[in-house]
Simulated assay, not measured.
Amino acid sequence: MSDQLNEITAKQCKNAPAAYNDLKVLFLNCTLNRTPILSHTEGLIKKAQAIFESVGASTKIMRPVDYTIPAGLGLDMSKTDEWDKDDWPLIQKEVDACDILILCTSVWLGEKSSVCNRTLERMYGYTHQFNSKGQYRDYDKVGATLITGNEDGVKHCAMNILFSLSHIGYTVPPQADAGWMGEAGPGPSYMDEGSGGPENDFTNRNTSFLVWNCLHLARMLKDNGGIPAFGNQPNEWQAGCQAGMDSPEHKG
């Protein structure tokens, strides 16, 4: 952390407005690099992780690229004729257990990574299921994103990721994205020596805002029983559903 981030974080954590030790935070690092290869995105993730943990929230980082994740919208693609193995249900179990999901990616050709696309697609495949209140299953969870790269695209990726999370039921707080971009072109990446990334106070400020806004919103949702189950229960609508279709939107 930069000296400024260290100082501000220590002060804020000492005067936190609530307790957060019952909150679970999951970072899905959609890097293209499998563990243990260096992930520049994970360098930024660890900044946010340190703040979450400093106020007692539990955290976990997973790299979807470490797992076998087939294309498809099935809950378990290994049960289809197309694939013999599917690790996605293992990741979905962690998604289900978290209160805050931070979907993280590097930027390639101005877009989020292919791993991030696959992750969102598999999450989308579960959206025909409901929670105990009859809402879509991801209601009452908080979503945000962290992004790194050495080319343009942070805000473009954030727009897509945050819309996608909101669309499937996540609640997105203010300032729910933070990122770092090096010099445009083949310049240094976030963790490269001399990049200036870890010391960049603009990135550090936005990362801190993201963490605290996620904590505030998750606390409010949990303490108030989540989003009221009124006017947002799919079973009250026919919505043009047809036999054999999980959802009117799953027509791909």
Rank of each mutant, 00 (worst) to 15 (best):
N224L: 05
P198G: 00
S247D: 15
V115Y: 07
A243T: 13
N235Q: 14
T207I: 06
N6P: 05
A19M: 08
P198Y: 00
G153S: 09
A158M: 01
Q233W: 09
W108N: 11
I227G: 06
Q242E: 15
G149Q: 06
E199T: 06
Q129G: 05
P17M: 01
D96S: 09
L28C: 08
I102L: 15
K155L: 14
A144K: 00
Y20C: 00
Q135K: 14
G153R: 04
L215A: 05
W108R: 15
I69F: 02
K14E: 15
T80D: 03
F130L: 15
L109T: 14
L5M: 09
F202G: 00
A16T: 01
E82H: 06
A19Y: 10
I102R: 02
Q238P: 06
Q175V: 11
A184H: 13
N213G: 05
R137F: 13
L75Y: 10
N117S: 11
F230I: 15
S58M: 07
E42G: 07
S114N: 05
A57Q: 02
G74D: 12
L5N: 07
K141P: 09
N21P: 06
V65I: 15
Y67P: 06
N117K: 12
H40E: 04
L217Y: 12
P89T: 02
Q12K: 12
G196T: 01
K14Q: 14
L23M: 10
A218I: 10
K112Y: 15
G134W: 10
V154H: 05
N15C: 03
P36L: 04
N131T: 10
I102D: 02
G149S: 00
V107R: 07
T105C: 00
I147T: 07
A10I: 08
I8L: 14
T171C: 12
S78G: 02
N21W: 10
V154L: 09
V25T: 03
I45Y: 03
M77H: 10
Y190V: 00
Y136M: 13
N235T: 12
V115R: 02
R219T: 13
P173V: 03
M220S: 11
E249S: 14
K79E: 14
R63T: 05
N235A: 13
T203R: 03
A176H: 06
A239C: 06
G252C: 10
T148G: 07
L23W: 06
N206T: 04
G196V: 01
L210W: 09
T127A: 08
L23R: 08
G56Y: 09
D246Y: 12
C116E: 07
L217H: 06
H128P: 01
W180D: 01
G187Q: 07
